[in-house]
Amino acid sequence: MAFRITPAFEADTIDIEIPLPGGKSITLELPQLGFVDPKIARAVDDWQTARFQEVQKTRDDLNKKRQPIIESDPAVTYPSPLDLMDRMLEHLDADAAVVVAGLSFREREQIWKHWNDESKVDAAKSSASSDSSTDEE
Rank of each mutant, 00 (worst) to 15 (best):
K24Y: 10
E107C: 13
K57C: 05
D60G: 01
V44R: 09
L62W: 05
S25F: 12
A11C: 10
A101Y: 05
I18N: 00
I18W: 03
Q32H: 11
D60V: 00
Q53H: 08
R4H: 14
E71C: 13
L20E: 08
R106G: 13
Q56I: 05
V36H: 04
K125T: 15
F35K: 05
E90Q: 15
K125G: 15
T13W: 01
A41N: 13
A50L: 06
Q48H: 09
I5M: 12
R42K: 10
S126E: 15
H114N: 09
T13P: 02
S80R: 14
P38Y: 02
E118H: 08
N63L: 07
E109L: 13
E71D: 13
D45T: 08
R108W: 05
V36C: 07
F105K: 15
S130R: 14
A2D: 13
R87S: 09
H91S: 03
T58P: 04
E90R: 11
W112H: 15
R66W: 08
K120R: 08
W112G: 11
E54Q: 03
L33D: 02
Q32T: 10
I14N: 05
I40A: 03
P19Q: 02
I5G: 10
D73Y: 11
Q56L: 09
I111H: 06
A97E: 13
S72G: 11
W115E: 04
D61E: 13
H91D: 02
T13E: 04
K24F: 11
V76E: 01
I111V: 09
D93G: 02
S127A: 15
L89F: 08
A75D: 03
K64P: 07
K113L: 14
A11Q: 12
V100N: 01
D15W: 00
G23Y: 01
D12P: 12
A41F: 11
M88G: 00
F3P: 08
I16G: 10
K120D: 03
A123I: 14
S119G: 01
I16C: 12
G34N: 11
D95P: 12
L30H: 12
E118R: 07
A96P: 00
D15K: 04
A101T: 06
I5P: 11
E54N: 02
Y78A: 12
A50C: 00
E136P: 07
L89P: 03
A8D: 14
P7G: 00
R4C: 07
L103T: 03
P19D: 04
Q67T: 07
Q48Y: 10
S80N: 07
